[in-house]
Design a protein around this nucleic acid. Structure first.
Length: 268
DNA sequence: ATGATATGATGAG
DNA sequence: TCATCCTATCATC
């Protein structure tokens, strides 16, 4: 399930597999069928990502705008294209590869202008090398909203989801309940500067690892540990378990309809 | 088999 | 704040 690192990885993957080629486009059972027919056989000219939004560009036809939401996923395959099983919203296929998109919140054909509008609605993306965190700081520094909610607000900052939120606040020792306007500039800069390489590493490994080498169970002389979502993390979904750094029980609560996790001692 | 759960976002009230 | 979209996975029966 997707945060920004997943989307940027997909943009690179779609480009690597289909870029510069004429691609078979279909929407076997979905409401995208009409648009897919218009794209079928065109060249995939480029891909792009901002935050959790993915864009696939087709020659002379504009962009396919994809948002995975909570459930969306892409299934990759090689060789002969199998019959679609269940709901496939968008299938791209060449002679030797195919990609099936299932369950996205959004999959629509848009114009270049509409792509710019989507991007303009989003805050800076730590995975876009040319962007800075300044616009996000402007929103955060004047806000009475909690920093936990602000980091999840895609208009403020794009690409960060529940895992990166919890983990970056832990790594920076910041209490998630603090108001945005209580943050010092240096604290925000530390969050932004930490997110960039952290999320870049997420793109590379296709998972979220946030535990520093000095805090791994091996380094701390503790038994090995496996997080149930496939990455090594400090607090995400570790409620009731001891903090990897200080041993205090990790806490959780519902915060704006999402699960929030933090260490009350390290993030006091 | 069934139910709970999830890394997201929107629109109504 | 709540319901809703709608899919895969895992735990429990």
């Amino acid at each position: 399930m997707p945060e920004g690192h997943t989307i940027h990885r997909l943009a690179a993957e779609y480009h690597r597999v289909f870029g510069g080629q004429a691609v078979g486009v279909s929407s076997p059972q979905g409401p995208f069928a009409e648009a897919a027919a218009r794209l079928d056989g065109r060249e995939l000219t480029g891909t792009d990502a901002k935050g959790k939004h993915l864009f696939l560009g087709f020659a002379g036809a504009g962009w396919v705008h994809i948002h995975l939401g909570l459930y969306g996923k892409v299934f990759w395959g090689h060789g002969p294209v199998p019959e679609p099983v269940g709901q496939v919203r968008l299938r791209l296929a060449t002679d030797d590869a195919h990609a099936d998109l299932r369950g996205p919140t959004k999959c629509a054909l848009i114009t270049p202008g509409e792509k710019l509008e989507v991007e303009a609605r989003l805050g800076p993306d730590p995975l876009r090398a040319e962007e800075t965190g300044d616009a996000a700081w402007k929103r955060i520094s004047g806000s009475r909203t909690t920093v936990a909610a602000l980091l999840m607000d895609q208009k403020v900052l794009s690409g960060v989801g529940n895992v990166y939120r919890a983990e970056v606040l832990f790594r920076q020792g910041i209490d998630p309940h603090r108001a945005g306007r209580s943050l010092r500039r240096a604290e925000w800069d530390a969050i932004w500067d930490d997110l960039r390489p952290l999320m870049r590493e997420g793109v590379r490994l296709n998972r979220i690892d946030t535990v520093r080498p000095e805090h791994t169970p091996e380094a701390m002389g503790r038994p090995p540990r496996v997080d149930d979502h496939g990455g090594e993390v400090y607090v995400y979904r570790r409620a009731g378990q001891p903090c990897l750094v200080c041993g205090t029980e990790v806490r959780t609560e519902e915060h704006a309809a999402r699960n929030l996790f933090w260490c009350p001692r390290c993030q006091a």
